[in-house]
Design a protein around this nucleic acid. Structure first.
Lengths: 281, 281
DNA sequence: CATGTCTTTCCGTATTGTAGAAAATTCTTC
DNA sequence: GAAGAATTTTCTACAATACGGAAAGACATG
C-alpha cells in the first residue's frame, strides 16, 4: 500500500470482482441456510432490491442452482448440490478418510466426524454415523465455532498463537452452555494442553449433554489439514473412558495422516520451523 | 415504436437472465467435474475469454466458492460445498430416508443409493455403504443416465410414455456394456415390466459386473419423488436372489414413502390423473 | 538468451445490470 | 364477492458495469 494516485478509481487487485456474480452468490448463500424463502424474504436477507433479486433468482433457477417450491418459495437446487459435491470429489481427503472412519465407528460405536477449518470456523465435511444413535448435531456442510468444539480446538491448537488470538478476537466469546470457555486466555491455555497430549476434548462446551474427542489429521506437508472426532452423549463418554477412546481416535487420525503422505518420523514436535540443515544454498 | 402490446403477451420471463451470473455459474460447473484446472483450461472449457474468466474466478475465490490450489490451479471451494449441502438440509427426503436406508443396508449387506431425477438424468443424493464393499460407483452428486440404471428406470417408469419418449430421444442410446438397451422401444417395453412388478433391475447394463435393484419412493402427492436402490457385484446378486432382495428394497422404499406422507390405500394403480377439477396451473 | 505458455493488469466502449415504478397477480379481510 | 393489502412480475431509461483485446509480467523450457 502507500499508493493511491489512480485517477478515477482504485486500482487494487482486490476489487476485480463482478458485482452481479457476487450478488448472485449472496442469494445462494441466503437460501443455503436451509429454509425456503419467497422473493421478498430473499431480497431482505440479501439486502438487495426486490427486482434485482427477482432477476438473479430467475437466472439461478434456469441453471438449476435454485428450485422453486410450492407457494412461490425458493430453495437450493440440485445443480448447487452437484457442484458442492465437486468439492469432495476433488479432495483426496474424503476418500482416504472414509474407510478409516468406518473402521473407527465400528470400534467405538459412536458417530465420527471430519472437519476442516475455514477462517474462524470449522466446517464438517464427512460424517459416519454409528447405528447406535440418531444424529446429534452437525451435518456435513454445517459450521461450528472453533473454541468450544473438539474439532475446533484441534484445528486451532497447532496454529501460531498470534493467529489464534486474531481468530478468537478479544472476547468474551459467545456462550452456548455453562461449560463454554468464554475467555480467549482460557482457550489459549486449553490449546496448550491439547497440543501437549495430542488430542482435544469437548465436555459439553458446545451443547449440553454432548461430549467429543478429537485428533489432528496432517497432510504430507505436516500441516493440520483436518480434525477427526468422535461425539457421543455425555453419559456414554465418562471421564474414565476418554483416554481409551482418545487413543483410538488418535490412531485413526494418524492412519489417515499416514495415507495422506505424512510421515511422523522426525517430528515429535510437529514441524514448527524449517529443517535445521546448516548447508547453504 | 409501438412495441407489442403486452396484452396477452406470453409472459416470457425467459430472457431475464444476468449474463455475468450465468457465466460465473458456468465456471463453477466446469470445476465441479472434480479436476483441478488452471485459468486457461477453465476458460477453454467454459468457452469464455481468458480475461473474463480470470475476473470471474477471482470473484468466486473471494467468496470461497472456489479455492486456489498449488500450481495456479483452482478447485471447488468450501463455500460451494456448504451451499450445496443446503440442498439436503432443505429437503425432508434425506432425513427421512437415511435411517431406513441404514436399516436396509443392514439387512442386505450391500450399498444403498437414493436418487432423484433431473431432466434426462438421475442424480444420486444419498448413499449408505455396506462395509462389505468399497464404493462401486456413483458418489452422491453424480449423474447417471436413466435408461440403463436401476434408479433411472424407476424414475422413468411412472412418467407418461410421451414424456419418456421425449427424454430418450430417437436413439440409439449410448452403449456402456454389451447388455445396455440401446433401443428406446426396448426401454419402453422394459419400463412396462418395471411398472407391473413394482421394481427395476439393472443387470450390468451400466457397468459390467454391477447389478442393482431399485424401487420407487413416492411423496405425499403420490408422485415418484426418488428411487431407492441396492447395488452389488453381479456375483452377489444372482437371479435367484433378486426377488428376495427386491422385496426388501420395495418395502424400504414403501416405508420411506409412508413417512413422507404417501398413503397407498386408495391407489393400487399409482395416481395417474388429477382430481377431476378442470383448474390448471 | 530466446521462445512459448500462462497469468494479470489496463482501458475505452457499449453492453448489461440496475432499481423505481407501474402492472399483474395472489392473498386477506370484511 | 368486492375492496384492499401484499406480493410477484414486467417495463424502461440510464449509467454503471462487465467486457475482451491487447499489452505487460511471470515462469518455465530448450
Amino acid at each position: 500500500m502507500g499508493e493511491g494516485r489512480r485517477a478515477h478509481s482504485t486500482a487494487r487487485q482486490s476489487d476485480v470482482h463482478v458485482r452481479a456474480l457476487l450478488r448472485g452468490l449472496a442469494v445462494l448463500e441466503v437460501l443455503a441456510q436451509g429454509q425456503d424463502l419467497n422473493l421478498s424474504e430473499v431480497a431482505r436477507r440479501a439486502r438487495l432490491p426486490v427486482s434485482t433479486t427477482h432477476r438473479l433468482l430467475e437466472t439461478l433457477r434456469r441453471r438449476g442452482f435454485v428450485q422453486p417450491v410450492e407457494d412461490g418459495r425458493y430453495r437450493v437446487g440440485l445443480r448447487a448440490f452437484e457442484v458442492g459435491m465437486g468439492f469432495l470429489r476433488a479432495q483426496r481427503l474424503p476418500d482416504v478418510a472414509r474407510p478409516v472412519m468406518v473402521e473407527l465407528v465400528d470400534r467405538v460405536e459412536e458417530t465420527a466426524n471430519l472437519a476442516v477449518r475455514d477462517g474462524a470456523e470449522a466446517v464438517y465435511v464427512l460424517q459416519v454415523e454409528s447405528d447406535r444413535m440418531l444424529r446429534l448435531f452437525g451435518q456435513p456442510g454445517s459450521r461450528h465455532p472453533l473454541y468450544c468444539t473438539g474439532v475446533g480446538k484441534v484445528l486451532l491448537a497447532w496454529e501460531p498463537e498470534e493467529e489464534v488470538r486474531k481468530l478468537l478476537g478479544r472476547g468474551p466469546l459467545p456462550r452456548f452452555t455453562p461449560r463454554t470457555l468464554t475467555d480467549p486466555d482460557a482457550v489459549v491455555r486449553e490449546l496448550r494442553v491439547v497440543r501437549a497430549r495430542g488430542y482435544a476434548v469437548d465436555r459439553e462446551e458446545r451443547e449440553s449433554g454432548v461430549r467429543c474427542v478429537a485428533a489432528p489429521v496432517r497432510d504430507a506437508a505436516g500441516r493440520v489439514a483436518a480434525a477427526l472426532s468422535v461425539s457421543a452423549p455425555a453419559s456414554r463418554l465418562p471421564n474414565r473412558r476418554i483416554p481409551q477412546v482418545a487413543a483410538t481416535v488418535v490412531s485413526a487420525a494418524d492412519e489417515i495422516s499416514r495415507r495422506l503422505g505424512f510421515s511422523a518420523v522426525r517430528n515429535s514436535p510437529p514441524p514448527a520451523g524449517k529443517i535445521p540443515v546448516p548447508s547453504e544454498s
